[in-house]
């Protein structure tokens, strides 16, 4: 069983983000890391390939400047290889443009039985890419998966719902978005980290994928940020240090609001 996992390399969420005042988009000039949201899909893919007894996990990513540090993390976890699309023409791409690129990159990665993504990235969080990829590839999809099993050529997914979860079945190949926290992503072993350094990363441009530059990047984004404004701030509240009696303030606050 061959599984492709779409992974995003993002600025470290621990560093406060900032918007570039000229382009009005998120600054992405620092070191990029593997989006933690994607580590769950990587883990799930590795488990599914293990259970199938054959096949491999291929990563697909789009990042500026040939950035591979996040990909190496996922390769160290056990993925076999990666396709990285890096092209100056991609700067400013919106979710639809990104999906067009990823769909072509997935096709380049070879025949896949299953394509996994996160439900949304931790920096852009549009949450539309999984479905956009599925539609571009004309594949069925199940979003918000918390458990995946493969039975022959049928996929069985537990899909989160407002009330609980649904059991959903669909034929392979398919696109599935994986909810964060549903599996425990493995830590790369030392051996894995060393092996990752020599695993193949197929770095390509949009020309290699046959993508028209006008359909991606700033040119292809059919949307424009017209203003960035400070949101209305909440009025500063009362902050007190607990001296053992602060609980009484909480109770009084609740009493004053008559919610007790």
């Amino acid at each position: 069983m061959n599984v492709v996992v779409c992974v995003k390399q993002i600025p470290d969420p621990a560093d406060p983000g900032a918007l570039d005042p000229n382009t009005k988009t998120l600054k992405r000039d620092g070191k990029l890391i593997l989006d933690e949201s994607d580590s769950y899909g990587v883990e799930m893919a590795l488990q599914l390939v293990d259970a199938a007894g054959s096949g491999e996990v291929t990563l697909v990513s789009m990042a500026p400047n040939g950035e591979v540090s996040g990909l190496r993390t996922a390769l160290a976890m056990g993925a076999a290889k990666a396709v990285l699309v890096s092209d100056d023409a991609l700067a400013g791409s919106d979710a639809l443009g990104t999906s067009k690129v990823l769909a072509k990159a997935i096709a380049r990665a070879g025949e896949a039985d299953l394509i996994l993504t996160a439900t949304e990235s931790s920096d852009g969080y549009t949450g539309t890419v999984p479905e956009q990829i599925a539609e571009l590839l004309q594949l069925p999809s199940v979003t918000f998966a918390k458990e995946i099993a493969v039975d022959g050529s049928t996929l069985k997914v537990q899909r989160q719902t407002e009330a609980g979860y649904d059991e959903v079945e669909c034929p392979l190949p398919a696109v599935v978005s994986v909810t964060a926290g549903v599996v425990e992503p493995r830590y790369p072993s030392f051996k894995g980290i060393m092996a990752a350094k020599s695993k193949p990363v197929d770095q390509v441009t949009i020309a290699d994928l046959g993508i028209d530059a006008a359909s991606v990047g700033w040119a292809g984004a059919g949307q424009e940020i017209v203003e960035i404004a400070q949101a209305e701030a909440r009025e500063a509240g009362t902050i007190i240090e607990d001296d053992g009696e602060a609980f009484a303030q909480v109770v009084k606050f609740l009493d004053d609001l008559k919610v007790v």
Binding site: A95, Y125, T126, Q132, L136, S141, R159, G222
Partner: peptide
Amino acid sequence: YTGRDVAGRLSVRVDAPVITN
């Protein structure tokens, strides 16, 4: 859950972006 599924697929079918969140 379903709203996002609809918006993503629709976006591709009409080749138009989505403004999210």
